[in-house]
Design a protein around this nucleic acid. Structure first.
Lengths: 203, 203
DNA sequence: CTGCCACCTAACATTCGCTGTCAATTGGCA
DNA sequence: TGCCAATTGACAGCGAATGTTAGGTGGCAG
């Protein structure tokens, strides 16, 4: 790795750190790109080369976490049972979370006060849902309802991650994310209500 | 209802219709607010009073649909089994869809070409997920894992709606949404893979 | 029927996110 | 050491979004 990339990496982190500091201090909307650029000692044009949108200053952090999780899923051997492979994915996200709790907390708190950030986060989850669905589809093969099963399974996984994170954030970071996700998995295995047309089958 | 509100309703529809026409014709990003305002024969400031953001010109349509569905859920008697009540909600969304297929198709197609629209749609789904979780929570009472069950149930319902719609849109509107959702419900009742920590229990 | 009030409308100005362009700078490498 | 390629940031400009304000229109009391 050359000096060039090292410097770029440093610049990138500089920008994100100053952005977070300012966002937390003054709020997302009332912080301008120019303020961030000035604080990070770069031109606004340079900032935009690293982070294409204002929201990405916050959301890229989660993006990399989800990216690592999806990569983890793909890297599991095909012989591994799907439920186990899916679990490794959740585990990866939680590991990243445990490594930088403060930043993750800040992300979700900022999302709560800035609709555009919330929107980008939600879109991100959707994109990864589709990504994961593709991998699940590949693993279960192309049976009858394969596409739908894959889509539903992927959606489930993203829900588990999302609800775990939100529950954790709601506790102010006090509870343990791993414990929460275990609880969620237990509840899921016990079964949750599923919509039914007729009154007959309850759950 | 006074003359004033009638006129406002007309203006509102005027704006949305012209916006959709322009979006479909030229794409979302390359259509400016001013073009829409001009086409609808209103000032840009007036347009913003009806639709606070450019994206809302598109997503308000879905918002009302989800709003009607949530209202439907709330209006079901408490004695009705939850799975049945949840079903009425899905049914309501699909009914709205069947009533204005062209507009719904346009919404999702535009979302595919405009990230900001996709993001707002996803955020909307998230908001309604939380809304529905509240109502589910109320109906199942405050038992041990009640909050988590409610959150997971609500997420499931929103997933069913979303996957139904996406599958339908992917078919170009050819397939029947009701049939798709029935298929999804059947698959769900048969059970989909759930992440597991140990290799032992394979769904 | 009339006149007043509240609300709707739209023009104007301004802020801010974001992009294209281009010249200056700096790292990589022969 | 000097050339090439890539990074940088200044400048200009577009378009979305908001505050302000003046003028118009419907609703309603007298």
């Amino acid at each position: 790795m050359g000096l060039r990339e090292i410097k770029m990496g440093r610049t990138r982190r500089q920008i994100a750190d100053h952005a977070f500091a300012l966002f937390v201090a003054q709020g997302f909307e009332s912080t301008t790109i120019e303020q961030i650029a000035t604080a990070a000692e770069v031109g606004t044009r340079t900032l935009y080369r690293y982070y294409p949108t204002k929201e990405s200053l916050i959301v890229d952090f989660v993006e990399s976490s989800l990216g690592a999780a999806a990569e983890e899923l793909r890297s599991q051997p095909d012989e591994m049972p799907l439920p186990r492979a899916l679990y490794t994915m959740i585990d990866t996200v939680l590991r990243v979370t445990n490594e930088d709790t403060e930043r993750v907390l800040a992300v979700y708190r900022l999302a709560d006060q800035a609709p555009s950030v919330q929107a980008r986060l939600a879109e991100q989850a959707l994109r990864w849902r589709i990504e994961v669905a593709g991998e699940v589809s590949r693993r279960i093969g192309g049976g009858e309802d394969a596409e739908l099963v894959a889509a539903l399974t992927a959606a489930n996984v993203m829900n588990i991650i999302d609800i775990t994170m939100r529950t954790w954030v709601m506790s102010g970071g006090a509870r343990n994310p791993d414990v929460i996700s275990e609880q969620i998995l237990r509840v899921l295995h016990e079964g949750v209500p599923i919509p039914t047309a007729s009154v007959a089958s309850f759950n």
